[in-house]
């Protein structure tokens, strides 16, 4: 186990290194406007001087080396157009906690709703509840989030008697954003859990258990559910990342000061340092998420021994 974990961790680090190099190199292809607050008004000489000062005229490997040096000092450079001269880390420090809190809450919510829905659907396969759940899942899959989020906001706020905008101090204001963000994952969890449970319930050991006279509920929860839950666990860490990125809709509707829209905003403002930092941050979270997913699986399901076939996740 320890050997596997070490190996898995090392591989994540290597991947992260490659991703960083690739992203950094790609960023050099971004328009140089993004390194200046007021590119339009600068003369060629000023632009060249500015680029030299920021070390952007150095050869790529040198730049990369400097960048990694900066990383160890927790220095991602400063923002140029988004918030002039403010360190990138400071901007992210303000935004991250909000996103993490919302992300965790919404993942939790989607598990609280998604897992029972999926279980109930599997339990009543082909009957009314299953069909109702199916309609829900299909709706979430088919209708663009941008549309139903807005509907939820307009009607939900009236129903709850809260303002249209988010107010962190008012607990009721958390309901709609969290619920909106949780909807996609709820459908996702319900869909897959139902699938796994239906598959599991066709297995021979279930037939055997039934033949032995084990009660239907005991079979359902003690055996089927437990075995079906394991593959679902793998998705949870990576769905956290997708939730944060996907929160752009919710954040812009409710004025939530999170990370969701930040990438788009800084891209529009072509703030290269910010884009770079955020892409790397997301990539890091992505790598860690996949790793956590794998590790969770291993921990929860002793049957899985990944050590033997490392290299094929």
């Amino acid at each position: 186990m320890a050997k596997y974990l070490t190996k898995r961790l090392l591989r994540s680090v290597v991947t992260l290194f490659i991703v960083t190099c690739v992203v950094f190199t790609l960023m050099r292809a971004m328009p140089i406007e993004g390194y200046f607050q007021n590119y339009e008004k600068l003369t060629d000489a000023q632009i060249q001087a500015g680029l030299r000062e920021q070390g952007l005229l150095d050869p790529l490997p040198v730049q990369l080396w400097h960048f990694f040096q900066g990383l160890f000092r927790w220095d991602f450079g400063v923002s140029h157009t988004y918030r002039t001269n403010v360190p990138v880390t400071e901007i992210l420090r303000d935004k991250l906690p909000v996103s993490i809190r919302l992300g965790c809450l919404s993942i939790l919510t989607s598990m609280v709703f998604g897992i029972p829905i999926g279980t109930m659907m599997a339990r009543h396969k082909g009957r009314f509840f299953d069909k109702l759940g199916t309609v829900f899942i299909v709706f979430i899959q088919a209708v663009p989030a941008a549309v139903y989020f807005l509907l939820i906001q307009l009607y939900g706020t009236t129903a709850l008697g809260v303002g249209l905008l988010f107010d962190a101090a008012n607990p009721r204001c958390w309901i709609l954003p969290v619920l909106s963000m949780a909807l996609g994952n709820t459908a996702y969890y319900a869909m897959w859990l139902r699938r796994y449970m239906v598959d599991e319930s066709n297995k021979d050991y279930v037939t055997l258990a039934r033949a032995k006279g084990v009660s239907e509920n005991a079979i359902m929860f003690r055996h089927i559910f437990r075995n079906s839950f394991v593959p679902l666990v793998q998705y949870i860490p990576s769905s956290f990342l997708n939730t944060i990125i996907g929160s752009i809709y919710v954040e812009s509707l409710y004025s939530i000061p999170g990370m969701g829209g930040l990438l788009v905003t800084v891209i529009e403002k072509s703030d290269n340092n910010m884009v770079q930092a955020i892409v790397l941050l997301y990539a890091t979270v992505g790598v860690i998420g996949l790793m956590l997913g794998d590790i969770l699986m291993t921990v929860l399901d002793p049957r899985i021994t990944l050590a033997g076939k490392a290299g094929d996740r």
């Binding site: 591989r11 991947t15 992260l16 490659i18 991703v19 690739v22 992203v23 790609l26 990342l241 997708n242 990125i245 996907g246 990438l263 788009v264 891209i267 884009v275 892409v279 997301y282 990539a283 992505g286 790598v287 996949l290």
Partner: peptide, 15 residues
Amino acid sequence: YNVLDNIPQTIILIL
């Protein structure tokens, strides 16, 4: 695969 899979698709799409 590792690299592409680790960068969320949305980000690549936006970039």
